[in-house]
Design a protein around this nucleic acid. Structure first.
Length: 495
DNA sequence: TCTTCTGACACATTTGAATGGA
DNA sequence: ATCCATTCAAATGTGTCAGAAG
């Protein structure tokens, strides 16, 4: 069985061809020095293709609850083309699929007015972030722990959505900065997955979706064989169904930007804002977000996308059928503007420009499609990102209008690592700010991470809060910081 | 009256600690 | 003392359903 055959992003037999055309499309519009570094593509593919197709053909629904509900199917992606040695932060969020609000009318979805004001973005940072590209490419990246909610007051790292609205997952790959070489600008890649678009609901509307979930979700096995409310409806979806025919969305919009993290340091005046390479910004902070204090509250990651300049935005439209997957993509296709309404059936191929200077892992550049990927290791529950994300989402005081750019977020991640101690061991007693500034760190901090000073102040507040929390809460936070420590200590000179 | 949302519920899987044997 | 497999209870993830809310 071809392991990758079930993925949306499909490896063409000759992966060089699409790469060339993708590059061509990008380079022709790119005026930055990084453009010459784009000899290799970053390829992202959505896993569980057949399952997603089944749901998509019916109209995927995702339950959202106050406490948060996992997605099923969950988003799992395979990434190739990253620099094995460079560290990346992988983030996922949900973006509106269109401007409609929907309602379920007897047996089908209908448009029910225009969308409600968009909620502040909440981002799910993969618990392994940051990690070397080698690690991201080793196993499919699973976001099965991502939870959706309709509770705008939640502070547990849940992704907040509007019920009866349609969303699509979006993946961010952000190159972590090199503490020793801040001018080594990394990249920022963004992928959307229209194939995984879904309607957020507080209760399932379509019985076919319910049955599909029960049939495929192990946690719902207790409902297997139970009569459905709408038994007369034949909801069986054969695995042999031609999903390409029923799938109505194959658009994959992607964008490549300079690493705002680095840009912010090179040009402090634009920290968190557009970079010199910016041509346009996909997401911008709209004033409507500030209509109410609650909605305007920065999820601390709220301004992530607003702060990320977009140098390139294109979509690759692959025609339907597997045979086309091995064919070179037409460069002109990259210039298509892909609105949801213009999406066409097919399978998505995502080819994006990398911003690294070293080639990706040779074994992954043109992977042998007959070789199954190794099974990922089991994740410990203690590796949950929620505590880390909770910390990341903490903001100073009640300054809701003080939106935090991605640069600040990554500063936090980096500084958490530094705060964890040089040996990789998590410090049980959080050090005082002076301790952060010893040795080379004293030199590095103000030069490379100008936002860290602000974070020190926040860390003070954070430590105070943690010490006043229950013991369990504190332990969770320290444990979650361990992987970050290990990653960053490898880069510390003299360690 | 209708639509949407909420929380309790039963049933399932997952997880990690405890235990015992090699 | 260490490692490994097994067991078991608690935590967690499901969809369902009745009732509340608007």
């Amino acid at each position: 069985m071809n392991y990758l055959a079930n993925n949306y992003g499909y490896y063409p037999q000759d992966c060089k061809e699409p790469i060339f055309h993708t590059q061509h499309g990008l380079n022709s519009r790119m005026n930055s020095p990084e453009a010459e570094l784009t000899s290799l593509p970053v390829h992202v593919s959505l896993q569980d293709r057949e399952l997603w197709d089944k749901f998509s053909s019916i109209g995927t629904e995702m339950l959202i609850t106050k406490s948060g509900r996992r997605m099923f199917p969950s988003c799992k992606v395979t990434v190739t083309g990253l620099n094995p040695k460079v560290k990346y932060v992988v983030i996922m969020d949900m973006v509106p699929f269109d401007n409609h609000k929907y309602k379920w009318n007897k047996d089908r979805w209908e448009v029910n007015g225009s969308t409600d004001p968009h909620l502040p973005n909440r981002f799910f940072i993969h618990p392994d972030s940051p990690a070397p590209g080698e690690k991201w490419m080793q196993y499919p990246i699973s976001f099965h722990k991502l939870k959706l909610t309709n509770n705008t007051l939640n502070s547990n790292g849940l992704v907040v959505l509007h019920s009866m609205h349609k969303y699509q997952p979006r993946l961010h790959i952000v190159q972590s900065p090199d503490p020793c070489n801040p001018h080594n600008s990394g990249g920022y890649l963004r992928f959307t997955f229209p194939e995984a678009a879904f309607k957020a609901v507080t209760a399932y509307q379509n019985q076919e979706i319910t049955k599909l979930k029960i049939d495929n979700n192990p946690f719902a096995k207790g409902f297997l064989g139970q009569p459905q409310k709408d038994e007369e409806v034949d909801v069986t979806v054969s695995s042999s169904v031609d999903c390409r025919r029923t799938l109505n969305s194959s658009e994959v919009a992607s964008s490549v930007t300079p690493n705002p993290f680095i840009s912010a340091f090179i040009n402090p005046s634009t920290a968190g804002g557009p970079s010199p390479h910016q041509t346009h910004t996909i997401l911008s902070l709209s004033n409507r977000h500030l209509n109410s204090p609650r909605e305007a509250r920065p999820s601390s990651l709220h301004s992530l996308c607003a702060a990320l300049p977009v140098a390139q935005s294109f979509c690759v439209q692959s025609s339907t059928g597997d045979t086309n997957l091995s064919s070179p993509l037409n460069p002109q296709q990259h210039h298509h503007h892909c609105s949801p309404a213009s999406q066409t059936p097919g399978r998505s191929i995502i080819q994006l420009q990398p911003y690294f200077q070293t080639p990706p892992h040779p074994s992954r550049q043109c992977p042998d499609m007959e070789l199954p990927l190794p099974l990922p290791p089991k994740l410990s529950r203690m590796q949950l990102p929620e505590s880390a994300l909770r910390n990341l989402e903490m903001t100073s005081g009640s300054d809701y209008a003080n939106l935090r750019p991605l640069t600040d977020i990554l500063n936090r991640i980096h500084f958490r690592a530094l705060a964890s101690g040089p040996s990789g061991k998590v410090l049980q007693n959080p050090p005082q700010p002076e301790q952060y500034l010893r040795g080379s760190d004293r030199e590095l901090r103000p030069q490379i991470y100008p936002a860290v000073q602000e974070y020190i102040d926040q860390q003070f507040t954070l430590n105070s809060m943690l010490s006043s929390q229950t013991e369990h809460r504190s332990q969770m936070d320290y444990v979650s910081a361990r992987p970050l420590t290990e990653y960053y200590c490898e880069q510390q000179p003299g360690k």
